[in-house]
Design a protein around this nucleic acid. Sequence first.
DNA 1: TTAAATTTGTGAATCAATTCACACTTTATT
DNA 2: AATAAAGTGTGAATTGATTCACAAATTTAA
Lengths: 208, 208
Amino acid sequence: MTKLPGKTIERLSQYRRSLLVCVENGKDYIFSHELAELHHITPVQVRRDLMLLAYSSVYRKGYPVRQLIEAIGTKLESPEGQNVAIMGMGNLGSALSQYLASVRPKLKVVAGFDVDSSKSGKIISGVKCHALSELKSIIDSENISIGIMTVPQSAAIEACELLCKAGIKGILNFTHVSLTVPDNVFLEEYDMITSLEKVAYFVKQSEE
Amino acid sequence: MTKLPGKTIERLSQYRRSLLVCVENGKDYIFSHELAELHHITPVQVRRDLMLLAYSSVYRKGYPVRQLIEAIGTKLESPEGQNVAIMGMGNLGSALSQYLASVRPKLKVVAGFDVDSSKSGKIISGVKCHALSELKSIIDSENISIGIMTVPQSAAIEACELLCKAGIKGILNFTHVSLTVPDNVFLEEYDMITSLEKVAYFVKQSEE
DNA sequence: TTAAATTTGTGAATCAATTCACACTTTATT
DNA sequence: AATAAAGTGTGAATTGATTCACAAATTTAA
Ligand SMILES: NC(=O)c1ccc[n+]([C@@H]2O[C@H](COP(=O)([O-])OP(=O)(O)OC[C@H]3O[C@@H](n4cnc5c(N)ncnc54)[C@H](O)[C@@H]3O)[C@@H](O)[C@H]2O)c1
Ligand SMILES: NC(=O)c1ccc[n+]([C@@H]2O[C@H](COP(=O)([O-])OP(=O)(O)OC[C@H]3O[C@@H](n4cnc5c(N)ncnc54)[C@H](O)[C@@H]3O)[C@@H](O)[C@H]2O)c1
């Protein structure tokens, strides 16, 4: 299967969320210009993206919503789902585990890890928390391929190494430490400060 | 002043964070290739970005770290700072306010807002929480230009309208609802699910 | 059943971001 | 002093993403 560009993947993920809302509202078909408007992009962009799904619409009726959701899901997800671990069950880590449980059934948060031994064995926000010593064995046994890093900055590099050694395949990094991972691990930085500073910059600009 | 591309702004924000770490470590000068390596990009990219700052290095010694931090700050920030409000002081909103206080002094979280009247007047995670009825007057009096949206999905559109009407200039949106704002308001969507789904996709790919 | 209107899919063009390639400045070495 | 080495800054080329422009398919209306 061909690898889609990251930008397209991002948009497909977003389209799907809008489409799920359409289903709730009983909307069965959607035109490219409608989807475009919802996401503040052009209809051509939408069609280009959907083109890459090798997915064809019904002429003049638009795209059938349910089938489209299905088609996006087939591209984005493994049929058997993927398991996720959270590294660092503090403020953000526990907010996230609670939250993620509710949104994407195919991405299941199945374990949390924390140095704080008082958390070991406890269930925090619906996720069982383990000691770091169990990392490798649980990642193997639970078949976890994705790690979310929500440890303090100071522990980030070390925690990342542990995850990689334990055989994780993808990391979503919430710390602001720029990490280095082996080639076979996919790393996505998720940086709130940067986003906020970007907003601040454009606001400042608009005031000048 | 010329408007820099959003991509460059993002990187400048990230460079600055690395540079602050350099200062802590007593490193006074840094080469473009060092900065590049920290961020997994090319040295040319770094130099291009710094070029846009109209900032010149000392030949063969690299860029003076403190001056560079200063120069980035001048581009990114207003000297008098910018004030931020959080809309929806729930799990994420309060985690954020606590967190932001500690990282960027020029971006100050000065107020929280919530429909939940039991929160009105209380200080949550160091930020005073107000009723929605006070929104406009506090945004004016506290000179708030940036809003962070952490309300439930269902309240997102309404809350966004309120913020815009109250004269906010930039919004960082943590809900997954695609919002529409007037032209003079800068909107940045910050979407965790999309990031996580992107990681999941590339992990899936690498397994095939 | 013909003409007009709507919407898709896509080659070609454009616009944006990144990288290449290299001249130039400085420092170190001989 | 001349030469080599290390880095920078930037025009030109390349790569990638988005938009334009339009043919083809379908529906609607006359
Ligand atoms: N709180 C926020 O809203 C927020 C927002 C953006 C980014 N972040 C980033 O997320 C990270 C966590 O923030 P937080 O507010 O949840 O902090 P926190 O202190 O509440 O949580 C950190 C957790 O990690 C655990 N930990 C420490 N060292 C560890 C290690 N080596 N291995 C595993 N676990 C370890 C701690 O015991 C703690 O439970 C920080 O890097 C922060 O910069 C937080
Ligand atoms: N919790 C997370 O880790 C997380 C992660 C990513 C995104 N999000 C998104 O952030 C948003 C908030 O998540 P949360 O977990 O903090 O939810 P939450 O329910 O804990 O908090 C929401 C808060 O908003 C308040 N609120 C409701 N309607 C409001 C209105 N009209 N105006 C102002 N305040 C209002 C509620 O009283 C509550 O305090 C959601 O949209 C969620 O999708 C959350």
